[in-house]
């Protein structure tokens, strides 16, 4: 089955981008990896941390197919994950999560 990609776009409060990335690395990344998620790439924009306006952090994850999606999803009620997103909300202004398959533009 085709690889499933997960795109997180997280709008981080002004001046908190560095702190947020440390917390993400220490708290969420191990939980994500334990559920079969691979961090494919990570970016932030505007490409300099701002102290008077938000930055967007963009994370691209992958899981091995729809079965991998459900493996990840079945563990989403883990209290540690709930606690992580509650902590995350305190440092962010909003976020979205999208699920994707590989496109066919560049065959």
């Amino acid at each position: 089955m085709p690889e499933v990609f997960i795109l997180d776009r997280i709008t981080v409060r002004p001046g908190r981008l560095g702190e947020y990335q440390v917390l993400l690395r220490e708290r969420y990344l191990p939980l994500a990896r334990a559920r079969g998620m691979t961090l494919v790439g990570q970016w932030f924009t505007p490409p300099i941390e701002l102290d008077d306006a938000p930055n967007d952090l963009v994370l691209l994850w992958s899981v091995p197919g729809p079965e991998g999606f459900w493996t990840m999803r079945r563990q989403a009620r883990d209290p540690e994950i709930t606690a992580w997103w509650a902590a995350s909300d305190a440092l962010t202004l909003g976020r979205e999560r999208k699920f994707m398959l590989l496109g066919e533009v560049d065959a």
């Binding site: 499933v4 729809p66 999803r73």
Partner: peptide, 21 residues
Amino acid sequence: YMLSPYHWGLVDGWYDPESPQ
């Protein structure tokens, strides 16, 4: 049903505790 992209890719976000949606 379970493996349809319409299900896991579009509808499930309404149910997923990790999703802001």
